[in-house]
């Protein structure tokens, strides 16, 4: 018995050390990013590892030196787009998933199949067409267009919240219906309040999208530099002619968006897990 306990203790010690090493490996690039963001010397490739001197300038200049890279403006743009996208796509996704989960109608199965098929096409194949559709409405190069692009097809991502709605017992709906509620009332007054985790999950996921994308935004915004989002702006800092001077500032800008997103993600990880696994687990 005692022997087994020692064995157990050795095993645990071993696992602890593996976890330690792995954490080190995983956190190292991020640590390096933070380190660069405080480095005083410019340049992306250096023949040494630790910065020779440290400074806050990279952070300060992001907000003060806006002649080439208007980081504060882009940050604000992204925030506006993210909030609007979160609002619009959450409503679209929840409506779609509610309909596909709770209502029964002839087109239900075909619609789900179509969504499944559409999901298999590589997304940015359609970019050029989307651009010209927006252009025929005179919407290109605006933040509004960006919101439309990010949330327009959002309904396709109904899958996770539908999984959640599927787990809410139908009996609740039925008893409400006996009380004379129509389906509209049931959706807004009963189902949604019961689905807080998935609502939060949907909001956060769509909120995070605009912070990450740099492809769609570059197609939509083209040369309209004032309407760039943070991701595209940071990406531009790494272009061939800018990388030498702006690499450290890029790191600072990246740290600044990584912090809020990390906090959001850590907060919502359990919703994420239950979302993906169809609400069948306790995170």
């Amino acid at each position: 018995m005692k022997n087994m306990r020692t064995q157990e203790r050795i095993a645990n010690g071993f696992i602890h050390s593996i976890l330690g090493i792995l954490s080190f490996v995983w956190i190292l690039p991020i640590f390096w990013l933070v380190l660069i963001s405080f480095r005083k010397e410019p340049g992306s490739y250096t023949s040494y590892i630790l910065p020779k001197s440290y400074t806050f300038d990279n952070y300060i200049k992001l907000f003060t030196d806006t002649s080439l890279f208007n980081y504060p403006r882009w940050f604000l743009n992204t925030l506006i787009v993210a909030i609007c996208t979160a609002a619009v796509s959450t409503i679209l996704v929840l409506m779609t998933s509610y309909a596909l989960s709770r209502l029964r109608f002839k087109m239900r199965k075909p619609m789900m199949n179509i969504a499944l098929i559409l999901g298999m096409f590589p997304g940015f194949m359609a970019m050029i067409a989307i651009y010209h559709i927006l252009k025929s409405f005179g919407l290109t190069q605006t933040l509004f267009a960006l919101v439309l692009v990010y949330s327009g097809g959002a309904a396709m991502g109904y899958y996770i919240s539908k999984g959640f709605f599927d787990t809410i017992p139908k009996a609740i709906d039925e008893s409400a219906m006996l009380d004379g509620a129509n389906k509209n009332t049931i959706f807004w007054k009963i189902t949604l309040p019961l689905s807080k985790p998935i609502v939060i999950y949907t909001i956060l996921m769509s909120f995070m999208g605009p912070w990450m994308d740099f492809i769609f935004v570059s197609v939509i915004m083209k040369d309209n530099y004032q309407n760039y989002t943070v991701a595209l702006g940071l990406y531009r800092m790494l272009s061939r002619e800018n990388i030498f001077m702006y690499f450290t500032r890029f790191a600072a800008g990246a740290v600044l968006i990584a912090i809020p997103i990390s906090i959001l993600f850590i907060y919502m990880q359990k919703f994420y897990v239950s979302g993906i696994t169809g609400g069948s687990t306790k995170g």
Partner: peptide
Amino acid sequence: VITIAVPQFVSLLL
């Protein structure tokens, strides 16, 4: 989880 939260274009370019 922190490594998930850093946008991919940042971590991968890095």
